[in-house]
């Protein structure tokens, strides 16, 4: 039966690299159209989990996934599921803004659409690119610079360009792996404000090692520690009175 309430559900999710188990029996539910932050110290498995959500983890031959990950009720690790289709539904934004340096701003957003032949005409392509840039709160800043190269943009603008590139494919879920780790405070603020807008239409999973950022932008938080999901809950509750002693220690800096 398909679950309509959750965008992502994991059931007894285990991930290992060789003999090393990095995600252990995780059962987690991420509600639709919310920002869900996965937080935890370095090496706790949060990025690994994020990469499992769109099956790019399997590009690493050592990685082994067992259990289930359901996107909108469908197990994406079931036999016969095409990983490319999964990735179309799940846009990904990484820590370092990675626009294609040899493509213009316009072409960067257009590339996925062209490669997948998702638009039929030049007009449709332009409309979709303007729409994606606007959704990513970048259009006003680059309207006259669509033929420029990303190297002329600031770090924050590059990251929003990458977000626009992901949005152009009309995914349902946005996966963000520390998207502001290398962005200045003004750029960070713009991206955080953008998340508030985007969650009206998308489910956003944000990996962050910054509890203050998780507190600022997310609706729900999951705390991962050494591969175990220690606690999941509403952001306000977790940051004020977490249910687990371990979460309390992490948030008060007693857990390194």
């Amino acid at each position: 039966m398909k679950s309509l309430e959750y965008a992502i559900e994991t059931r007894r999710l285990n991930i290992s690299y060789g003999d090393n188990r990095v995600i252990k029996d995780v059962d987690m539910k991420i509600p639709k159209k919310t920002v869900f932050a996965l937080m935890g110290p370095s090496g706790c498995g949060k990025s690994t989990m994020l990469r499992a959500f769109n099956r790019i983890l399997e590009l690493n031959k050592d990685a082994k996934v067992s259990g289930e990950i359901r996107l909108f009720g469908e197990n994406i690790y079931a036999p016969g599921v095409d990983p490319t289709e999964v990735r179309k539904e799940t846009g990904m934004v990484f820590q370092y803004p990675n626009p294609f340096p040899h493509l213009t701003v316009f072409e960067n957003v257009a590339i996925g659409l062209k490669l997948n032949k998702l638009v039929k005409s030049r007009d449709e392509l332009e409309d979709r690119i303007h729409w994606a840039l606007e959704k990513a709160a970048l259009l006003d800043e680059v309207r006259d610079r669509l033929k420029n190269y990303p190297s002329e943009l600031s770090g924050g603008q590059k990251q929003r360009l990458v977000i626009a590139r992901a949005l152009a494919m009309k995914p349902k879920i946005l996966l963000m792996d520390e998207p502001t780790a290398n962005i200045d405070p003004i750029g960070t603020r713009k991206i955080e404000e953008l998340l508030f807008e985007l969650k009206k239409d998308y489910t956003i999973v944000l990996v962050t090692h910054s509890p203050p950022q998780a507190a600022r932008v997310s609706d729900h938080v999951g705390f991962l520690y050494l591969g175990d999901l220690i606690e999941v809950g509403k952001t306000g509750k977790i940051f004020e009175s977490p249910g687990s002693e371990l979460t309390e220690k992490y948030l008060t800096g007693e857990l390194i």
Binding site: E240, S241, L251
Partner: peptide, 9 residues
């Protein structure tokens, strides 16, 4: 310091 959890309480 943006304290959290017990520190904030």
């Amino acid at each position: 310091y943006q304290p959290m959890a017990r520190d904030m309480r």
